[in-house]
Simulated assay, not measured.
Amino acid sequence: MSYTEARIQYAEEEGAVRVADEPMVEAIGLEKSYGPVKVLAGVDLNVARGSVFSLLGPNGAGKTTTVRILSTLVRADAGRVRVAGFDVVRDRRAVRRRISLTGQYAALDEEQTGEENLRMMARLSGLSRRGARERAGELLERFDLTGAARRRVGTYSGGMRRRLDIAAGLVGRPEVVFLDEPTTGLDPRSRQGMWELVASLAGAGTTVFLTTQYLEEADRLADRVALLDAGRVVAEGTPADLKRRIAGRRLDLTLADPAAYARVAERLGDIAVLHDPDRLLLGVPTDGSAAHVRALLDGVDPDRDAVDRFAVYEATLDDVFLALTGRTATVAAGGDAETSATAREETARV
């Protein structure tokens, strides 16, 4: 018996847990490869009912593949997944009736109006004509789209399309909503509106599974965060817990010249959580106290000739990701293997 199989068996034996305590999304030992590319290498996830859970990671880390598996679109090579209490393989239809998936780009009929799109989705969900009309009206009002209800979707802004796309996914009142990078390509105002929308979904009791590259987004919205890197979860916890792992604040040092930057970077070694040679900037964890900041400065610049200026900032999730992976969450070393591999599989399937 493999390690993953043993963990699945243990989870099944522990299945006497009360249903009310059962997570809405549970994954154990997920593995997935596309040809020679290992996209997921043993991913465990546990998402509480009515919470916002955010999966962070650089391009190619495995975020989209994870969402595809959780939402029944792709079958994992190994591992087990339960969503809303149902196995995604054995009970795929039951899972699909309880979830909504919104991808990175709106999936709407641009020749129809916003109202027509929602009524069509409602009819496909089994509602009567009257029920579809009423449900469309409810969602248009909730998503502040009543004024544009009879406009062709092709005339909508990016933010309006994203709101309508999510509204379409809520026609069937899903228990779990998967949002795969929902604010990609949106301007700051539209992104802020989307954040408010996600918060309102969770406030109404819907479980939201959010993937994003925007660390501020996860910091603002998520009850819990998992950091995915190279197909593995490298850290999980509340945003505050993760930031406390590397210290509550960060001391940024701007060095006088490239030679001073190299010298201080060597002295800091693995302590530094931020490296920006273009701006001659290094960042190190600190508790923010004057005594600790002075001790750090004395240690890295005893001759007072290397540091040009310094500043103390609150630690961010970006600092956490840098500390754990050695790079930012928006850049993946070696390119986006997940995207290209997934695209090859989808092309082959067609």
Score class of each variant (00 low, 15 high):
residue 18 R to N: 11
residue 116 E to S: 12
residue 25 V to N: 05
residue 57 G to C: 08
residue 103 G to D: 04
residue 43 V to W: 07
residue 59 N to R: 08
residue 54 S to H: 02
residue 76 A to G: 13
residue 58 P to K: 13
residue 57 G to S: 08
residue 83 V to W: 08
residue 11 A to V: 12
residue 27 A to L: 12
residue 33 S to R: 15
residue 73 L to E: 00
residue 24 M to W: 02
residue 118 L to R: 13
residue 70 L to G: 01
residue 84 A to H: 11
residue 55 L to V: 06
residue 74 V to K: 01
residue 23 P to T: 03
residue 71 S to W: 02
residue 34 Y to V: 04
residue 46 N to Q: 15
residue 120 M to I: 01
residue 91 D to Y: 00
residue 72 T to M: 05
residue 50 G to R: 11
residue 26 E to P: 02
residue 47 V to S: 05
residue 66 T to C: 10
residue 111 E to P: 04
residue 115 E to T: 00
residue 110 E to P: 07
residue 112 Q to E: 10
residue 107 A to Y: 03
residue 22 E to S: 09
residue 84 A to I: 12
residue 28 I to L: 15
residue 20 A to F: 01
residue 70 L to D: 03
residue 57 G to I: 11
residue 91 D to K: 14
residue 85 G to D: 09
residue 91 D to I: 00
residue 38 K to C: 01
residue 83 V to P: 06
residue 89 V to N: 09
residue 85 G to E: 09
residue 32 K to T: 06
residue 73 L to W: 02
residue 81 V to F: 05
residue 87 D to A: 10
residue 78 A to H: 13
residue 64 T to F: 07
residue 37 V to C: 03
residue 74 V to Y: 05
residue 29 G to K: 09
residue 38 K to N: 11
residue 45 L to C: 08
residue 27 A to G: 14
residue 88 V to Y: 04
residue 60 G to Q: 10
residue 98 R to Q: 15
residue 12 E to H: 10
residue 51 S to K: 15
residue 120 M to E: 09
residue 52 V to Y: 06
residue 96 R to G: 05
